[in-house]
């Protein structure tokens, strides 16, 4: 039986996605122009991640 993953292995991506999402939600609220662009890229990250892992064939 495969050994359990460590906490870091389990939580690294969720925490990263959470921080990036938080940054994206905040950026456009605080800054125009560049802030909007940052929010588009940052909030696209969870969408792209979900689609990448969700539809890929392994």
């Amino acid at each position: 039986m495969k050994t359990s993953l460590t906490g870091i292995q389990i939580w690294a991506m969720p925490v990263l996605l959470g921080l990036v999402s938080t940054g994206g939600l905040t950026a456009a609220l605080l800054f125009d122009g560049i802030g909007d662009a940052v929010s588009w890229i940052a909030l696209a990250a969870p969408v792209v991640t979900a689609l990448w892992y969700g539809v890929r064939r392994t």
């Binding site: 993953l5 906490g7 389990i10 969720p14």
Partner: peptide, 19 residues
């Protein structure tokens, strides 16, 4: 749901989907 994510993902890499 977040609390349960840990135990349910104990042996699965992030994003693994058992198809």
């Amino acid at each position: 749901g977040v609390v349960l994510y840990g135990p349910f993902m104990r042996k699965l890499a992030f994003g693994a989907v058992r198809r």
